[in-house]
Simulated scan of single mutants.
Amino acid sequence: MDAVRCAPNAYTYSILMAGLCDRGSLDEARQLWEEMAAKGIRADIVAFNTLIGGYCGAGEMGKAEELFRGMVLDGIAPTATTFDRLIRGHCKVGDVDTALLVYRDMKRKGFGMEVSSADQLLDEMRERGMVAEALEILREEMRREGFAASRKSYQVLIRGFCEKGEVEAALKLQAEMAGKGFEAGEKVYDSFITAYERVGNIQMVERLKAEMVEMGANVKGD
């Protein structure tokens, strides 16, 4: 860093730390963080978000949360990016409860999730059987200007309702999904087939498999 001719600032350090975080070199990124502090350069929100994102990407949530607390104590307000990265990080390590706490804190401050983060949270909630709660979160985000549910959002929730045997709820979502221009695809068909097989509705199983063949999709078990 000392080889840089211009005087380094927080932005310069953030760029270098981002490159190291992308390579998974978190120890080196932390060394730059400490070097920045030793030189009396105050970390800004970009620097904090960069290193928090690095720790979240590596699943080191203790360090990410420690940085987050330090940021707040320094009087730096978190941004949507800060919360988004923490949610993704907690989902990455399977800590849905903490991810939801972060989400609620995020909403209280007037922010919303990126679509990819929402999809990740919904899928983790599905894994926990929290499908109805996941749908509520999706509805909450859909009321926010600029947010549009993705095809994956619907796939995840349809799978979740099918796993719980709530096929009617899954069918309503599939109709809504189609209304938004998303094709069902193999994942949705597989979810419904599994649900109908579970209750012994062979007629619907065969019908859906035939539809899959017509659209050129792979039918599991055939």
Rank of each mutant, 00 (worst) to 15 (best):
A3P: 00
V4N: 14
R23P: 00
S25G: 05
E28Q: 12
Q31C: 06
L32P: 03
E35G: 02
G40D: 08
I41V: 09
R42L: 09
F48Q: 04
N49P: 10
G54N: 13
E60H: 15
G62C: 04
E65A: 01
E66Q: 10
E66I: 14
M71N: 07
G75Q: 02
T81I: 12
T82F: 03
D84I: 14
D84M: 04
D84K: 13
G89E: 01
C91T: 10
D95Q: 08
V96T: 11
A99N: 02
A99V: 01
D105M: 05
E114I: 00
V115S: 08
S116T: 15
D119V: 11
M125E: 12
R126D: 00
R128S: 09
R128E: 15
R128M: 11
G129T: 01
G129A: 08
V131A: 10
A132T: 14
L135K: 15
L135Y: 09
E141Q: 09
R143Q: 15
R144S: 03
G146P: 00
E163I: 15
K164N: 10
E166P: 15
A169R: 06
A170V: 03
L173I: 08
M177E: 02
M177Y: 03
K180W: 02
G181K: 07
G181N: 04
E186P: 15
Y196L: 07
R198C: 01
G200I: 12
Q203C: 03
E206D: 11
G221E: 01
